[in-house]
Design a protein around this nucleic acid. Structure first.
Length: 138
DNA sequence: GGCGTGACGGAGC
DNA sequence: AGCTCCGCCACGC
């Protein structure tokens, strides 16, 4: 039950609008995505689409982008380990987000070319730490 | 409620 | 490798 790989979400499609926190800071889908992202390990990167699949939301890569954008800062998610399926940083080269992400990746040993292309450690081993508590705890 | 807009992805070329 | 085009889907206006 604490296994993100087996996300217990309703069939993708309808429940995205269901608020999951009293403060309205997220949805069920967002929480599932945050859980998966929180489990990413240093030195590796994963594609948005892959995150979506691990969260039980296949084909909804764009939702992952939204979820990261609206993630509470307190979660301190390793959002920089999420890149596009083509192996490049999603932010436009030159943008703030691009520089931030590139710097964070370089800091943990992931090589990123100026173009935004990640040249090392593409694809991480899917780990499944118990992070539900982190997100759902009282 | 239609319509444009993405931190997307995959297929073509 | 780089560009279109198109499908997808939640959001805002």
């Amino acid at each position: 039950m604490a296994d993100p790989k087996r996300a217990r979400l309703p069939a993708a499609g309808q429940s995205d609008a269901v608020a999951v926190q009293a403060d309205g800071a997220g949805t069920v889908s967002h929480a599932a995505i945050w859980t998966v992202v929180a489990a990413l390990v240093p030195g590796h990167v994963v594609a948005y689409g892959e995150i979506a699949r691990r969260a039980g939301l296949p084909r909804r890569a764009r939702l992952v982008a939204q979820a990261l954008k609206s993630a509470p800062a307190e979660l301190a998610l390793p959002w920089h380990r999420v890149i596009r399926a083509d192996g490049r940083i999603a932010f436009p080269p030159g943008s703030d987000g691009f520089r931030r992400q590139r710097r964070l990746l370089l800091a943990e040993g992931v090589a990123v070319a100026d173009s935004g292309r990640v040249t090392t450690r593409w694809r991480d081993p899917a780990q499944a730490p118990d992070l539900d508590s982190m997100l759902w705890a009282p």
